[in-house]
Amino acid sequence: MRIEDEIFELIRNSPELKPREHFIQQTKMKLMNEAKKYNQRQKLFNTSFYWSSIAATIAIVIWISFFGGITYISDSVSQVMASFQKNTTPQVAEDHHVNTPISTKNPTVFIYHTHNTESFTTLASNKKSFSDSKKNITLVGKKLNESLRDKEIYSLHNKIDIQKVLKNEGLKFEDSYKVSREIIKEVLEKNKDIKLVLDIHRDSSKREESTIKVNGKNVSRISFVVSAVSSKYEENRKIADLFHHKLQDKYPGISRGVLVGGKATKNNYNQDLFDNSLLIEIGGPENTLEEEYRSVEILSEVIIDVLDEIE
Rank of each mutant, 00 (worst) to 15 (best):
287 N>T: 07
243 F>M: 10
1 M>K: 03
91 Q>N: 10
49 F>D: 02
57 T>D: 08
128 K>P: 00
162 I>R: 06
235 E>M: 08
8 F>S: 09
297 E>F: 05
98 V>S: 14
180 S>G: 05
28 K>S: 13
147 S>M: 06
290 E>H: 08
50 Y>K: 09
90 P>G: 04
189 E>S: 09
239 I>S: 10
245 H>K: 13
290 E>R: 04
14 S>D: 03
211 T>D: 10
294 R>T: 01
231 S>W: 01
291 E>L: 06
285 P>D: 13
283 G>P: 12
90 P>E: 07
175 D>Q: 07
142 K>M: 07
257 G>D: 05
279 L>V: 15
112 Y>S: 03
73 I>K: 03
33 N>W: 04
49 F>V: 08
34 E>M: 12
225 V>T: 11
19 P>K: 05
251 Y>S: 06
121 T>P: 00
214 V>D: 02
255 S>A: 07
34 E>A: 14
221 R>N: 04
251 Y>R: 08
307 L>Q: 08
248 Q>R: 04
23 F>M: 11
15 P>L: 11
205 S>Y: 08
50 Y>I: 10
159 K>D: 15
144 L>M: 11
49 F>W: 08
259 L>S: 07
234 E>Y: 07
311 E>L: 12
227 S>P: 10
110 F>M: 12
34 E>G: 09
271 Q>V: 02
156 L>N: 09
159 K>T: 14
225 V>I: 14
207 R>Y: 15
228 A>G: 15
14 S>Q: 02
56 A>P: 00
260 V>K: 11
31 L>C: 06
120 F>A: 04
290 E>M: 05
194 I>V: 12
53 S>T: 14
232 K>M: 15
167 K>G: 03
303 I>M: 08
80 V>L: 13
98 V>P: 00
15 P>C: 05
11 I>N: 06
190 K>E: 09
298 I>Y: 08
14 S>L: 02
230 S>V: 00
64 I>L: 05
88 T>P: 02
48 S>P: 02
167 K>T: 12
22 H>M: 05
116 N>R: 11
117 T>L: 11
136 N>P: 04
23 F>N: 10
185 K>H: 00
213 K>N: 13
180 S>F: 10
74 S>D: 06
287 N>I: 09
38 Y>T: 08
294 R>I: 07
285 P>L: 07
160 I>F: 02
226 V>K: 13
2 R>I: 13
225 V>G: 01
61 V>R: 00
174 E>Y: 07
262 G>N: 07
310 I>D: 10
296 V>W: 01
